[in-house]
Write a protein that binds this DNA or RNA. Sequence first.
DNA 1: CTGAAAGCGCTAACAG
DNA 2: CTGTTAGCGCTTTCAG
Lengths: 348, 348
Amino acid sequence: MSAQTPSSPPRPRPTMRHVAALAGVGIKTVSRVMNGEPNVSEATIKRVRDAVDRLDYELDVNAGNLKRANGRTLTLGLLVSSVANPFAGAVHRAIEQAAAERHTAVLAASLDDDADREEAIISAFLRRRVDGLILTTVSTSQSYLGSAQERGTSMVFVDRQPIGLAADSVISDNRNGAATATAHLLARGHRRIAYFGDRTLIQTANERRSGFLDELRRAGVSALDLPVVDDLSDEELALEAVARVLAGPNPPTAIFSSQNLVTIGAVKALRQSGLQHRVALVGFDDFPVADLLDPGITVIAQSPSAIGRLAADRIFARIDGDRSPFVNEVVPTTLIERGSGEIAPDGK
Amino acid sequence: MSAQTPSSPPRPRPTMRHVAALAGVGIKTVSRVMNGEPNVSEATIKRVRDAVDRLDYELDVNAGNLKRANGRTLTLGLLVSSVANPFAGAVHRAIEQAAAERHTAVLAASLDDDADREEAIISAFLRRRVDGLILTTVSTSQSYLGSAQERGTSMVFVDRQPIGLAADSVISDNRNGAATATAHLLARGHRRIAYFGDRTLIQTANERRSGFLDELRRAGVSALDLPVVDDLSDEELALEAVARVLAGPNPPTAIFSSQNLVTIGAVKALRQSGLQHRVALVGFDDFPVADLLDPGITVIAQSPSAIGRLAADRIFARIDGDRSPFVNEVVPTTLIERGSGEIAPDGK
DNA sequence: CTGAAAGCGCTAACAG
DNA sequence: CTGTTAGCGCTTTCAG
C-alpha cells in the first residue's frame, strides 16, 4: 500500500527501449510480443514478458498508431443529447458492448440540443482521430462533415438523419409509432385528441407530430380544431400546457404526448385535474415504472439497445471497408398497453 | 451534398506540412497558430488560417502529445457500473461538464460489477495514456494501480473506496443515509423492519447494511430475528425475496431496501400482496416518478451530480499538480418523504 | 517574429 | 527468428 500522500515527482514511464534493454533484445522484438505478432521464439517471448512485468510497462497505442499502416486509433466518438438521458444511456451501452469486442474505446459527449456546440465537439473527436463517429445531431446541416467523411472517418447518425450529407443512419420508426398511438386512440372511439410535443427543431419531434396528423387524416378526422402544442422542452412546461388545455373549452378526451418528459408532465396535469381515469393517454417512449402508475401508462416503446447495436454494426462494417450504398435503418416501435391508453371517450 | 455511396479510396488527410507549404511558411509557424502560441504576426496568422480552411486541416492531438513536454492527452477514463444506469449517467454528465471546460474528452466504460474485467478496462485506458482515471471498482484490491499512480496518472474513486491503494475518493454517505432511513422507520414506531440488499461484494451495499444494523443497535432493537436478505442483484430476485418474507410467519411492518431495483421489486411485491398501504417502505437511492406512485415512495436520495462534480474537481486538481494528502469526500444524502415511509406499524 | 533540426514512442520495411 | 533503419505528425530547442 502506498503512502497517504501522492508521490512527489512522478517516476518516469518506461518505454519499449527500456523493456528491450532489460530483456536483452531489440526494440522490434518487444513490439512483436506486445502486439502478438508471430515469429518470436517462446523463450524470447518469455524474456520480454518478464521484463514487461518487472517494469510494469504499458504499450502506448497513440504512439503506435502514428506509424501504423491503417492508422486506426481503435476509438469511437459518440455524441448524444445527454449521457444522463436513459435513452442515450441504453444506446451507449449497446455500442460500448460491440466496441469492447473490437477492443475499441468510446469517447462520449453530450450535446444538450445545443446546435452551436455540435461542430466543436465533433471537431474535438476528429482531432483525436477517432475511427468512427456515432452522432445525434441538432444543427440544421451536417455538410461540414463531408471532408472528414472523404478522409475515411466513418459515421452513422442515430435518432436523426443527416442534413446536407449522405451517410448511414439508424432511427426509431417515429412516424409509424406516432400513427400507431393515434390509431389506438381512434379505435377506442376518441375523436378529440390533443397532441403535446417536444421542440420542433428536433427531427424526431417533427416526425412524431407528422405521424399523429397523418393518422388523423387517414381516419378522416380534421386536426384543425384539435389542441396541438409544440416546444414543450421540459416536464414543467408540459404540465402547464396540458393543464391549460384540459381546463379550456371543449377539452380533449385523449392525449398523445410525443416524449418522455412531456408524458410525465401530462400525467401530473391529469392527476391535478382528477382526470387520469377519464382522459386517455398514450406516450411516445417508455420510462421506468410506467407500469406501476395508476393507471399504468400506455406507451410506444422504442428499442434503444437495438438502435445502438445496429449503429455499432454499421460503423464497424464501414470501418472494415464496406462501400455499399448508405442505408437508413428504421427500428420498429412497440405499443405497450397498460391502461391509460385504453380509456374510452366517455371515461370508461 | 456528397454521393449516396461512400467515396472509394479515402482521400489523404492533410498534415501540417501541407498547410505550411500552402501558406508559404515553416511548419513550426503553423504549429504556433494552431496552438495559439504568441509571436506570430497577424498577417501570417491569417495566411495560415486560410490554408487551414482551404485544406480542412485538423490538428492531430495524439501526434502532438508524443513530444509535448507535459505529455497531457486531455483525456479522462471513466469506469462506471454501467453507462445505462441513471446514477452513473448523472455522475458522467457532471464529470463531462467539468471536463469540457478544460477541453478534456471522456472515455467511458461499463464494468457491470464484473471484477475480472476491471483490470483489462483500466489497462486499455492506460495504454491510451489518459491524464486521469475516475473509477467505480468492484475487485478486491486496486493495488495493481500503484505503478500507474507513481507515474503520474491521477485517479479518484467514485462510489467506492480503493482497497490496497491510497487515493482520493468521493462517495455518498451510505452508512448515515441508511441509518437515517432506519431511524425514520423506528421513529414511526416500527420495530419489525426487514432489510433487503444488493450483492454484498459491492462496497456500498455493505455500508448501507451496516448503517441499518448500527441504527437498530443504537435504538436497542435486536436485529437477530429480523429478516435481512442480501445479494438481490435484480428486480426479479428482490420481488421474490420480499414476497417470501411478507408471506412468512411474523412479517415485518416496515421495509428498508438498499438499492433502486430492490426498491422497485419491493413495491411490486407489496402491491401483489395488497400491502402497499399497510407496510412502510424506505428505499435507498431515488428514482424517476417515485412521487407518482401510490403511495409515493420515501427514499434516501443521493446527489450523483454533486459526486461527479467533486470527483472532476479532485482529479483536475491532481492533474494540475496538487500534492496534498489524499481525501475521501463524503457527500450527504437526503431523506425525501413521500408517503410509503410514513406508514405506521398498524398500517395507518 | 520565423524556421531548421532533432526526436517523442512506436511500427513498417527490410536485411540478416 | 531477430535487429536495424527510417519516419508517422507533431513539438521542442535553438539559431537566426
